[in-house]
């Protein structure tokens, strides 16, 4: 699939945003009923990230001026659900902040609903991809876990950079490990998941069964078309492997080491900030690969097998 930068930014940024909101709600629910200036900064960052992500997601639309229509089909469409949930989550969270700032009150039930909404938003985002059966590498619950994992890990990474408490650093550390466990599982599944994972082959795509091989002889058009640029994105095997290493290194190993150093040296602020930046970059690369490496079965009609 074509890795559109707006979509990569959207999923990464809004993922982190909702991750932050989720964590803050958890904190509230865990009894930290007061919001500090620190947490308010975090909350604002969360809202900004989520909002920027959502806005950027309209950049790849053919007709962004009609984007509002996208919230109408919650009964069937994960994209619609995501839009609605995202807005509700942001409103809910903004409500929490506003209430606190105006009256100093924090209502736990609001945090509870916000947490649920926020997690659902992340799930909805993930489901946009996980529901796509023609993309076998996406079509798995692991995709949802990965999105949840990276949302929480990036969310906590931001939180920890703003407020590098030991507690936050530990959580960031834990989130990082968990997210990468999911992602490694996802990658492992992906490596086993070919185009024909669900049984789709050039033979089933064309109905030309009973032959020893079926190969594309001529494309319908010699140059690229929308389907090819959008869904038959080609990325070299070597290139992909290199990028995976970078994603893992920048997004996992180096933040891991930084956080470890932070814990060991107590020089928290710098290391945590560094780890957060690297983690976000790494997740960006991971997201790029998430698209670039996802093969769509339509490629069977364009010479892939």
């Amino acid at each position: 699939m074509h890795p559109a930068s707006s979509v990569i930014f959207f999923t990464t940024a809004s993922g982190a945003g909702f991750g932050i909101m989720s964590w803050l709600c958890v904190a509230i629910l865990m009894g930290h009923y007061t919001l500090t200036p620190h947490t308010i900064v975090m909350g604002v960052i969360g809202l900004v990230l989520a909002g920027a992500g959502l806005l950027s997601s309209t950049l790849h639309l053919g007709n962004p001026q009609r984007a509002w229509r996208a919230v109408s089909q919650w009964r069937t469409s994960w994209l619609s659900r995501e839009g609605i949930l995202a807005v509700l989550t942001c409103l809910n969270f903004a409500g929490i902040l506003a209430l606190y700032l105006t009256s100093g009150v924090v209502l736990p039930w609001m945090a509870g609903s916000c947490l649920v909404l926020s997690l659902l938003t992340i799930i909805a985002t993930a489901m946009i991809y996980a529901q796509i059966k023609p993309v076998p590498r996406w079509h798995t619950k692991l995709t949802v876990l990965c999105y949840l994992g990276f949302s929480t890990s990036t969310g906590m990474a931001v939180i920890a950079s703003v407020s590098p408490t030991r507690y936050h650093v530990y959580l960031a550390f834990g989130g990082l490990v968990l997210a990468w466990v999911f992602k490694l599982l996802w990658w492992q599944r992906a490596s086993r998941t070919s185009l024909s994972h669900d049984g789709s082959t050039t033979a089933t795509a064309t109905g030309l069964t009973g032959f020893s091989s079926v190969k594309l002889f001529e494309k319908p058009h010699m140059t690229q078309n929308y389907l090819m640029t959008e869904m038959v994105f080609e990325i070299g095997r070597k290139h992909a492997a290199r990028l995976r290493q970078i994603a893992l290194l920048a997004g996992g190993l180096l933040p891991f080491i930084c956080l470890g150093l932070a814990i060991m040296t107590g020089q928290t602020a710098g290391f945590v900030m560094l780890s957060c930046v690297m983690h976000l970059i790494g997740v960006g690369v991971e997201r790029w690969l998430f698209f670039a490496e996802a093969e769509h079965v339509v490629a069977l009609y364009y010479g892939k097998s």
Binding site: L61, G62, N63, P64, R66, V298, Y301
Partner: peptide, 14 residues
């Protein structure tokens, strides 16, 4: 139509 492209992604047949 907002041109989000999701329907095209979901179509196995291109």
């Amino acid at each position: 139509c907002i041109g989000c492209g999701l329907c095209a992604w979901s179509c196995a047949y291109g």
